[in-house]
Design a protein around this nucleic acid. Structure first.
Length: 935
RNA sequence: GCUCGGAUGGUGGAAUGGUAGACACGAAGGACUUAAAAUCCUUUGACCAUUGCGGUUGUGCGGGUUCAAGUCCCGCUCCGAGUACCA
């Protein structure tokens, strides 16, 4: 009987589905385990063979944990809001909801073929109102909260209002956009509108005028992590800087907690390091500088307070608010010209040509320590968004300041003994200070400390910790995203919708582009106003009415829906709350999270932030969302090439191509097998090649190959459906794991899949002969057979815990080869083999499990334990080496003592040759079966 | 520039400091077959020997620690990923 994988896989997929074998509920009698995959964005291209890699690994682990007795939550869903569907809608007029639904359907079909153990009853889609209800809910909660730095926690904004009524800002330490200080009386004297504006300074979700990454081609702003080298991540369009009033999330308030939290979670060091860099904590000081002949004062941030005696000029960012007041009339024209020029530069231009540019303001600042007057310049190497947007320049000890000073002929002072600053600055933080007044003679480290103390003592400034992490810009001028549950009242103040009126559903529009007046696409909606009396969405045309107000026209960004989806899986159908206390207490947080590294500074920061906020308001019981995280590597494409002789339609085989002038052309990898071109298929592939001629080697056309990104244009996309059709899902699953270590990127290469397919056939052949079943039960297994299977159980148990799935697959192959040559078809041996294979190849395992007479699903079988006693050998082979070089092998009974081993080693004939009659200096016998004799 | 990875046969890759190259692909030879496919067997790091045993060398380069180093330490070279005027 043959291994008919198509029949087996279809049968069991249908059965599992019908019996809902993967449905899970909270079960207090079993420990929980939560395995999560990063949910996909359903793109129009469908899945290629690289996408399921992580899903296969997580599925193996889920099934393994289940066999180990855990109640495993393993859900799947879709990150369904996003730019591609909207871009497609703009081009074709097709509603993004429709394309998204089609794409999801296609994804589901592809996923279903691979035999995953997802609990589809818990599926979430971020674009579903039942889901984004809770995205909007969390947003309002953030709008109604402030961050108390003393308590290191988010608190209700109502509490802040009470404090302001009682004591103003006195004694408060609140995360804010701008440091404010006022008394009770000042607060009380403010109008409602003014009070709201003050509160906006503190809200965790706030409207702020910020420098944003504006992408004109996409017509929207983008978050920092959505911009790569000055281009949009999606589409690759240029991005420029612009000030806009936008919704923001005060992620920066959580910077320290996001940093500290990393210590307690089990992520790779490199990923933690990436996040640490992104958060960018730096300890330094803020210093006040007075402007000469003026009452203006400004603040700068520095980590090198010790270099205060070497400050020879100051630099402002072009966008700094200080530019205007500090520019002297005689410099005005020059400054204006400079500002114009920098404004035109995109982010990319700034990076591309790092020329030193700048302009003098005409003003001088007074060094608070030396009282020297120093010129204030403007330059775009100072960033408005970091620190205070102004710096003190120390050209002797900062390479950027050095380049600037050299270019504009500004003085350079050396502050460190023996430093050579004639060619470049001395940036290192070591050496002995000179030319530095009271700091001279100290080491740099001592000087930093002393300078900070001095600054605080004299009231010149304060010690300050700065973070690179910025607040997240949360508005997008797009249609296909979550609407903000916000309307604007008569004063133009944003007001949240009542919680009981959520979700606020995305309105229909007739076109997806911005309006003629430049408003976001939601400006096209005819029904997009809020009636505060009847508490409902009404026609936009009714806005003139006193109680009817416009709704927010922006939508939320992609990361809004993906930030807390793992919580929703715990209780996906709850329409009363985000998650019930019971479900939250039971599932807690994600035990194992699998996904790509590309989310290191986006999703994985936002999610942690979002989760910490929810923790603060008591909505969830865990502070960190993902206990352990594994990044699966990317599967790249393996492209094939044919070589066309220039100006002809003749193609020459790989090893002969150097004799001709050729152009390499990508060829569809699906018509190439083991790098040998299927010539007929090639002729039919493209009409252009119908009459192609070939110069062959050994009667074959050999193609060249290269590793590239898997993409349509390289003709190297391999569809999992085709592999499943040809080899079956179990083969695909095993092969993807066999390809190499999970966390490593590697090219897909269909060559080699036969090996694992052959393994499954061999396994099948242990159960079935040519015509009938040949497995037997009730026959005592031999020691060899027991050793083979127990060795396997030990190896696979260890490997799964260490996510080393590739070596597990090898171990299965070895075991099946051994059993085949032992002609072992005994149930007692085969049954545990099936149980541990089930996570990897669930269909064939389920089939054989039932063949052996079991009635329940193999997933509920218990993971077998191995017994050491079967692994012990009667005879141990020692490798005897002299001075570390291996010379011969020695077979001894396993129970031989150390003395017996040594004696046997030395009495051997071969030993005499190497010891040359001398007494060995040392004999080392190690348990690894090595004897080393040192002569 | 900084941070983090990595470098092992023709290829993908195995090796708690203990006989390097498991397992698989590919290749070569053979069995079965009219033939092919499928299946099975043998060989397969390199070099030398080959009538048999065998020998030499070998994990990017140079040092070091150790009885013993692909593995640990120091110094390089190259490749990949992330990040970047962050004061």
């Amino acid at each position: 009987m043959e291994y008919n994988f198509r029949e087996i896989e279809q049968k069991w997929q249908a059965n599992w589905n019908a019996d809902k074998v993967y449905h899970v509920t909270e079960d207090e009698s079993r420990p929980k385990y939560y395995v999560l995959d990063m949910f996909p964005y359903p793109s129009g291209a469908g899945l290629h063979v690289g996408h399921p890699l992580g899903y296969i690994a997580s599925d193996i682990y889920s099934r393994y944990k289940r066999e180990k007795g855990f109640n495993v939550l393993h859900p799947m869903g879709y990150d369904a809001y996003g730019l591609p569907a909207e871009q497609y809608a703009i081009q074709t007029g097709q509603h993004p909801a429709i394309t998204t639904e089609q794409n999801i359907k296609r994804y589901r079909e592809q996923l279903d073929k691979l035999g995953f153990s997802f609990d589809w009853d818990r599926e979430v889609q971020t674009c579903n109102p039942k889901y984004y209800h809770w995205t909007q809910w969390a947003f309002i909660k953030m709008f109604e909260s402030y961050y108390c730095k003393q308590a290191q926690q988010a608190r209700p904004i109502a509490e802040l209002i009470e404090v302001f009524e009682l004591q103003g800002t006195k004694g408060m330490d609140i995360a804010c956009t701008e440091e404010l200080s006022f008394t009770t009386d000042v607060w009380k004297a403010k109008s409602e509108k003014e009070k709201q504006e003050v509160l906006m300074n503190y809200r965790i979700a706030y409207l702020g005028d910020t420098m944003v990454n504006w992408c004109p081609a996409l017509g929207t702003v983008l978050a920092n992590d959505e911009v790569v080298n000055g281009f949009s991540e999606r589409g690759g369009y240029p991005v420029e800087q612009k000030v806009m009033r936008q919704w923001c999330l005060r992620v920066s308030a959580y910077a320290q907690r996001l940093l500290d939290g990393l210590d307690a979670i089990d992520w790779t060091d490199s990923l933690k390091e990436t996040q640490r860099n992104w958060i960018g904590r730096s300890e330094g000081a803020e210093l006040q500088f007075r402007v000469k002949d003026s009452d203006i004062e400004f603040t700068i941030f520095t980590t090198r307070a010790d270099t205060i005696f070497g400050v020879t000029f100051m630099v402002l960012a072009p966008e700094s608010e200080l530019v205007k007041p500090l520019t002297k009339p005689e410099q005005q024209a020059e400054v204006n010209a400079y500002l114009e020029a920098t404004k035109k530069k995109t982010e990319r231009d700034r990076i591309a040509d790092r020329k030193v540019t700048g302009v003098f303001t005409g003003s001088y600042a007074i060094n608070p320590v030396t009282n020297e007057a120093i010129p204030v310049w403007i330059s775009d190497y100072v960033l408005a968004g970091y620190g205070t947007g102004a710096i003190m320049a120390v050209p002797g000890h900062d390479s950027r300041d050095y380049a600037f000073a050299k270019h504009f002929n500004l003085p350079i002072v050396n502050l460190i003994e023996g430093a050579d600053i004639s060619e470049e600055s001395f940036d290192a933080k070591d050496g002995i200070m000179i030319n530095s007044g009271f700091l001279s003679g100290l080491t740099v480290k001592e000087a930093i400390k002393k300078a900070k103390e001095y600054i605080e003592e004299k009231g010149l400034g304060k010690v300050k910790v700065n973070f690179r992490l910025r607040d997240a810009i949360f508005s997008r001028q797009r249609y296909w995203g979550e609407p903000f549950p916000i309307y604007y009242d008569a004063d133009g103040l944003p007001r949240p919708l009542p919680y009981d009126k959520l979700p606020l559903e995305l309105p229909e529009v007739d076109k997806f582009l911005p309006t003629v007046t430049g408003e976001p696409p939601l400006g096209n909606a005819t029904k997009w106003a809020w009636d505060i009396v009847n508490r409902q969405v009404v026609e936009t045309s009714m806005i003139d009415h006193k109680t009817i107000f416009p709704l927010e026209l922006n939508t939320m960004p992609g990361f809004a829906g993906s930030s807390a989806y793992y919580i929703r899986y715990m209780d996906p159908h709850n329409d009363k709350e985000l998650v019930s206390e019971k479900a939250d207490q039971y599932w807690q947080n994600v035990d194992l999270y699998l996904g790509g590294t590309e989310h290191a500074t986006g999703h994985l920061i936002y999610s942690r932030y979002w989760n910490k906020f929810l923790y603060d308001i008591g909505a969830v019981c865990e502070d960190e969302p993902f206990r352990k995280l594994i990044n699966q590597g990317m599967i790249q494409g393996r492209s094939n090439f044919v070589y066309r002789i220039n100006g002809t339609n003749t193609f020459v085989s790989l090893n002969l191509k150097d004799n001709y002038e050729v152009t390499p052309l990508h060829v569809n990898v699906n018509i190439v097998s083991n790098d040998i071109l299927d010539i007929e298929a090639f002729r039919n592939w493209n009409p252009e090649y119908k009459d192609a001629e070939f110069i062959l080697e050994d009667g074959k056309y050999l193609c060249g190959w290269a590793v590239e990104k898997m993409s349509k244009s390289m003709f190297n996309v391999v569809n999992p459906d085709d592999i499943v059709e040809k080899y079956g899902a179990d083969t695909l699953r095993l092969y993807e794991m066999f390809l190499g270590p999970l966390e490593q990127s590697k090219p897909w290469d269909t060559n080699g899949i036969d090996g694992v397919h052959r393994f499954l056939k061999k396994l099948w052949n242990l159960f079935y002969g040519e015509t009938e079943a040949k497995w037997v039960s009730g026959v005592e297994p031999t020691a060899e057979e027991l050793k083979s299977i127990h060795k396997l159980i030990k190896k696979v148990s260890y490997d799964i815990e260490h996510f080393s799935f590739n070596t597990s697959v090898s171990a299965f192959m070895i075991c099946v080869n051994e059993l085949t040559s032992l002609k072992c078809s005994k149930k007692e041996i085969l049954e545990p083999l099936i149980v541990i294979l089930a996570p990897f190849a669930p269909h064939i395992a389920e089939e054989l499990w039932h063949v052996l007479g079991n009635k329940t699903t193999v997933n509920d079988a218990k993971w077998p334990d191995y017994k050491e006693e079967y692994l012990v050998e009667n005879v141990v082979t020692y490798a005897v080496s002299f001075n570390g070089k291996t010379r011969f092998n020695l077979d001894l009974p396993a129970e031989a003592t150390r003395e017996e081993v040594e004696k046997a080693a030395l009495s051997n004939e071969a030993a005499a040759k190497w010891t040359e009659g001398k007494t060995p200096k040392k004999i080392i016998v190690v348990p690894k079966k090595i004897i080393n004799i040192v002569v």
